[in-house]
Every structure is written in structure tokens, then in C-alpha cells.
Simulated assay, not measured.
Amino acid sequence: MQDKPVALVTGANKGIGLRIAKDLAAHGLTVLVGSRELENGEAAAKSVAEDARAVRLDVTDRASIAAAAERIRSEFGRLDVLVNNAGISHAGKPGRPLEELAASNIPSVASLDEVRAVFETNVFGVIAVTQAMLPLLREAPAGRIVNLGSDSGSLTLNSDPSFPHRAVFGVAYSPSKTALHAITLAFAIELEPTGIKVNAASPGFTSTDLNNFAGTRTVEQGAREAVRLALIGAEGPTGTLSDEDGPLPW
């Protein structure tokens, strides 16, 4: 077992996940770059740090999750930080304009197959990965779990007619983040006696392929809160949703 803390970031071969991986490496952690395609992960790991390693991890594939957990156990013996970053905004054709994505997400016309696919990655995938990695997190002196949530999934904010993004609260992406927030709280409640802290970070409207690069924030900005929560000490919170400006309502 090595002395350096070990972090696993899912979906870390690009976008916010890659930036989180780089920032955690800069803070002295050995970062495992989770990627559905190992080649993409290996290319990304080279840009993260000398000791960063690629791990094949498809959050919708239980065999791949189990294999990743076994590899981490055999090579490191523990996991200090888990960042559940992997996510999708839709399951349709890549590169669709944001307006088209919003139109396809309207409750009365949305494809149930697409809604299920989004939830499979953004919700069930997070549960599956967290369950598989928990034995390794329990081996760490101070385990941390960070889920990439979103203010677009806040029921409180979207209930306010003045909330600027309210019109795009459809039935796939935003509700999947609402469910992810609930799962974050559920794990936090269960794990509170263990000292493992579980929080959700909202990156804001960040420019990534999830929104066809229509976002207004950089990946550097989008990664900041997740990195902060991954590095919190014993006095830090658990069971929260926040962004750089502080707590957000569920």
C-alpha cells in the first residue's frame, strides 16, 4: 500500500473530469483516470501526471466496475477519493444543438428509452460504482466521495419562476441530477458514522460536449468545487450540494 492518497475520477478522459484529475494530481494525489475506452484514458493520463494511471471503467457495465475495483485493491489496497463525474445529457445523436436537446426533453414528447439511458449512467451508474468502491474507501483514513450534481437538478430553484434555467427542466438530465442529489444524501446519512464524507458539487453551465460546448464556464471553473470537496478535512461537511459560491438548495 502506497502512502500517497489515491483518487478515482470516472469519465476523466475529457471535460470537467479531466480537469478534476489534473487538479487532484497537482495536490499530490495519485489519480486513476476512469474511461470507457482504455486508449482514451491512457492518452488523458499522460496529461494528468507522471504517476496517473488509466482504468477502464464503464459505469453502466458491472463487470468493468468490478474489474476496476479489483485492480485498485491489488495495486493500491485502498481508495481515498471517489469522484463520480461520468454523466450524459442525452442518449441521442452526438453534436445536436442545445435547442434541439431541450426540445427532445419536453415531458410530453421525450423518449422513454432516452430517459432510461440517462438515468442508467447518471443515477444507477453512480450507485453501482460507489457500492463497488466503498470497501476500498473504508480502508482509507478519511474517505471522500464527490458526485457531480447540478443546480439544474435543484427542485427548489426550478420551482421559482424567476430561475433562468427553469424552462429546460425536462424529464431526463435535470431529474437525473435531482435523483443523484437524493442518492448523495442517502449515502451521506449511511456513512456519516464512518467518517466518509459524501457531497455533491455543481459545476455550473460549463462548456463541454454534454451541451455541445454551449456552456458559459470553463472546465477550470467547473472543476473547482468538486476538487475542494474531495480535499476537505475532518471538519468539512457531508450530505451537501454546493458550488463555488456556497451551499445550494436541494
Rank of each mutant, 00 (worst) to 15 (best):
Q2F: 07
K4E: 14
P5Q: 02
V6W: 02
K14N: 09
G15R: 01
I16C: 01
R19E: 15
R19N: 13
L24F: 09
L29Y: 09
E37C: 03
E39I: 12
E39T: 15
E42K: 15
A44F: 08
K46V: 13
K46M: 11
S47V: 02
D51L: 09
D51N: 15
V55Y: 12
R56D: 04
A69I: 10
I72F: 09
I72R: 10
R73W: 11
G77N: 05
V81H: 05
L82M: 03
V83I: 14
A86P: 10
I88C: 05
A91L: 07
G92T: 05
G95Q: 10
A102T: 12
A103W: 10
S104W: 03
S104I: 10
V109G: 04
A110I: 14
L112T: 13
V115M: 13
R116M: 11
E120K: 14
T130I: 04
Q131S: 09
Q131Y: 09
A132Q: 11
R138Q: 14
A140P: 01
A140W: 11
R144K: 10
V146N: 06
L148H: 03
G149N: 00
S150L: 02
S150H: 06
D151T: 04
S152V: 01
S154M: 00
L155F: 03
D160E: 07
D160S: 07
F163P: 02
F163Y: 15
P164N: 09
P164I: 08
H165T: 09
A167P: 00
V171L: 03
H181G: 01
L185R: 01
A188I: 00
E190Y: 04
E192M: 13
E192Q: 11
I196K: 01
I196Y: 05
G204V: 00
L210Y: 03
T216A: 11
V219H: 08
V219M: 09
E220N: 06
E220M: 03
G222W: 06
A223R: 14
A223K: 07
R224A: 13
E225M: 14
A230I: 03
A230N: 07
L231W: 11
L231G: 10
G233T: 02
T238F: 08
T238S: 15
P247A: 09
L248D: 10
